[in-house]
């Protein structure tokens, strides 16, 4: 195996965002070098799963038939994927039991979607969520689905529960269109959060309109976008059929997992040397700077369900 070399560029990339930088050590600063942490053995991994905090459990569910060749999502397959994911996430025996841990009949539920024209969350995912929220006893007139305009939408203003669902895509400025970033519509001036490649998006999650209300995050990985070109950033050439959903309560863990898959796809497509995109450091900073959740893969309990071919993680 080739020896891993940590360059000062690697260090500068890691130093701002992760506790790993300290573990790497760096010959350019004169800091004491610490050997890289070896990968966990099977028994260590099992122990880590046992001890992983509940909030950092993430379920990746995939179905090879979730999306047709023309990119049309299969509503039935997506409903089944969501059901399997929430059941596993809450360690329950049925989706209904799991959804009781997400919503109660007295809740007002805002489903924060994403309406980006080229790659939206999609009605199949939205309907799958809404169906289970209805079945959990929440009346239809207290369920809202929206993206832009949520700040002035009474259903979102009064929401007691938020469910956050958006498609995964790379992003010119933020690095990745993350579930964290999906709440940018809850602020009156989104550009106020653009500094340093959207480094502090996590602070949005402390605003009263959203704080502590999000019970489920769904990173839609049906056909993720792994590369930007052009002003809109979208081109069909850089979509791939992954057929997945990443579901969790810890938004940082969900995003960190999705980001790893996108990075893996970029390496697969471009090769190691050309995989640079704007680094999505807002995800790691949501952990290390803002303590919103867990970005360290070693601390995320990742449960994989369904189609394994080409899973990339």
């Amino acid at each position: 195996m080739a020896k891993m070399i940590i360059t000062r560029r690697d260090f500068l990339k890691a130093a701002a965002v992760t506790p790993v930088a300290g573990a790497i050590g760096c010959c350019c600063t004169g800091a004491a070098s610490v050997p890289p942490r070896p990968g966990p053995s099977d028994s260590e991994a099992a122990a880590a799963l046992q001890s992983a905090p509940r909030g950092s459990r993430v379920v990746l569910v995939r179905d090879r038939n979730a999306v047709a060749a023309d990119r049309t999502p299969d509503a039935e397959a997506i409903q089944a994927m969501l059901d399997d994911a929430v059941t596993a996430l809450f360690n329950e025996k049925s989706p209904a039991a799991a959804w009781k841990k997400i919503v109660a009949p007295g809740d007002t539920v805002g489903i924060k979607s994403n309406a980006w024209r080229q790659l939206p969350t999609g009605k199949e995912v939205e309907n799958a969520i809404k169906k289970r929220v209805l079945e959990a006893g929440v009346p239809a007139d207290r369920i809202g689905i929206a993206d832009r305009g949520v700040l002035n939408n009474p259903l979102f203003q009064n929401a007691t529960v938020l469910i956050n669902a958006r498609p995964a895509r790379v992003h010119y400025w933020a690095g990745m269109g993350s579930c964290l970033k999906n709440y940018i519509q809850f602020v009156p001036k989104p550009s106020a959060y653009h500094d340093d490649a959207c480094a502090d998006l996590a602070t949005i999650w402390n605003l009263p309109i959203v704080k502590d209300k999000t019970k489920l995050n769904i990173q839609v990985m049906l056909t993720p976008l792994f590369h930007n070109i052009g002003p809109s950033g979208f081109n069909e050439k850089y979509l791939w059929t992954y057929g997945g959903l990443i579901v969790g309560q810890d938004v940082v863990a969900v995003d960190a997992t999705a980001y790893r898959i996108i990075q893996a796809k970029r390496r697969q497509f471009f090769g190691e040397d050309q995989a640079l995109e704007t680094p999505a450091h807002h995800i790691a900073l949501a952990d290390t700077r803002h303590k919103l959740g867990t970005s360290d893969p070693a601390k995320i309990e990742l449960i994989k369900l369904g189609w394994m071919e080409g899973i990339l993680i």
């Binding site: 500068l12 130093a15 701002a16 965002v17 640079l276 995109e277 704007t278 450091h281």
Partner: peptide, 15 residues
């Protein structure tokens, strides 16, 4: 520096 990093990563900081 954010656009620089897009093409060649140097540092998250504008060093």
């Amino acid at each position: 520096h954010i656009l620089l990093n897009r093409h060649f990563f140097v540092s998250h900081e504008d060093i």
